[in-house]
Amino acid sequence: MPFRKKPEEPSGLSRRGFLKTVGAGTVAGGLIGESATPPRASAQAPALAGPGPIPLELNINGKVEKVSVEPRVTLLDTLRNHLDLTGSKKVCDRGTCGACTVLLDNKPIYSCSMLAVEAQGHAVQTIESLGTPEQLSAIQAAFVEHDAQQCGFCTPGFVVACTAFVHDHPNATLEDVRAGLGGNLCRCGTYHGVTEAVLQVVKTGKGGA
C-alpha cells in the first residue's frame, strides 16, 4: 500500500511552470498552538526566478512575511539579515552545528542548508516563536533551571531541537536523548544541563507546551 497518496494531477497553474505551493493546511498541528494553521503564502513566482532578488512570501512564526531576496539567499540569512530574527545563529553555515535549527512543518532542520525560496509554502517556526523571556516554554524554563547555557550562542538552536525532540519522544529515556540530539554542537560544554533539562520536561510531561 502506498505510503503517500498518488500525486494529484498537476494543476493548470503548475503546468504552466509556476512554483508549486505545498499547502500548509495539510501540515499536522504546530508544536506551538497558535501556529498550528499558519496562513497560506502564495508563491506565484515564474518558472525561472532570479538570479536577482525575487519577492517571497514566507510563513514565519504564523505570520506571512514578505521579503525580496536572491534565490541564493539561505533561509538562515533571510531570517537574520532581512527579518531581524537573529535567534537562529550562524556558526558553521555548513549543516553541521545546529545553531541555525528551525522547525519546518514541525520538523527540525538546518536553516543554513535551505534556500529561502524553498521555504515558501511551508510553516517555519524560529526560536522567537517558542516563548519569551517573560513567558518561557517548558523547555526554556528547564534550560534556565538546569543552566543548559553558558555563552548561549548554541542555545536557541538547541532549544528548537529539544522542543521537537520532546514533542516526538514524550517518554524519552536518557539513551533516547543521547541518540536524538546529535544534530547540535556546543563549545562551552552545556550537554549535561541540556540532558537534565530535557529529561525533566519529559518527566513532567510538559513537552507539548
Partner: peptide, 21 residues
Amino acid sequence: ISRLDGPVKSTGRAKYAYDIS
C-alpha cells in the same frame, strides 16, 4: 542561583555582535 540572562539566551532574544543590525 539561575543565571540572570538565562531567559534572554534561551529565547533567542540576547543580541550578540553577530546579531547587531
